[in-house]
Design a protein around this nucleic acid. Structure first.
Lengths: 112, 112
DNA sequence: AAAATGCGTAACTAAAAAGTTACATATATA
DNA sequence: TATATATGTAACTTTTTAGTTACGCATTTT
């Protein structure tokens, strides 16, 4: 895991990181508690955490020697916006189709 | 690009592929027309197209020797749903916070 | 104070992804 | 029909990513 600063899309590309986010959506967890849910080693999880942290997907609260991971909205925003862009693309497309159909329907009514 | 069948999140992890989707949101384009927008070779673009196609992000209409790429909604859905899940997570969280604040406000009114 | 716990990090390996060039093939054009 | 065009694919190289083990360092606990 050479680079720990990836863009939001690269952050969520990894299935393990998405699962970490899933787990954190249920409850805040420490690094070790998270690692118990995976087959991989604890350091591997630790690195994923770093990636998620740098991407703004989680925040970390250190209590003594423990680090509690909590979901953070920032990272999700980039993805949200990207999806919104294409969402409005589809809606515009649908709208255009509707307009065409309406015009056709009107013509039918006027001609008969 | 060993594997051309990736999950939706891996498909959009690549910046070039996201740019292809952007370009296609403006107009349908052939493989060559797309390749003109990139520094990489035409075969490289061709492979990205394959990945996007297998992921359900685009459909392809073959006209003679040309292949016209068009956006397709299917691929976006998985990402959309994933984002929706966390979106409702944040909304629920906000709702809970509001409830707490309302209870506190009521108590204040009742006690004075 | 000694031992145990909860972590981070460095150094390395293995696997996967992205790119390249060279070539094959089908369709269109002169 | 010869040539140009639009593309796919195979074989290879390079780069990135994900994982490992070994180790170090605070902070707790005994």
């Amino acid at each position: 895991m050479a680079q720990t600063t990836l863009d939001a899309f690269q952050v969520i590309a990894d299935p393990s990181r998405r699962q970490i986010l899933q787990l954190l959506s249920k409850e805040s967890l420490t690094i070790n508690a998270l690692a118990e849910n995976f087959d991989m080693s604890r350091p591997a999880v630790s690195k994923h955490i770093k990636v998620l942290y740098n991407g703004g997907f989680i925040s970390i609260q250190t209590i003594g020697r423990q680090r509690h991971c909590v979901l953070k909205q920032d990272g999700f925003n980039a993805v949200q916006q990207w999806i919104n862009y294409f969402d409005s693309f589809w809606q515009t497309k649908l709208k255009k189709l509707e307009d065409v159909l309406n015009i056709k329907a009107e013509k039918k009514i006027n001609n008969h």
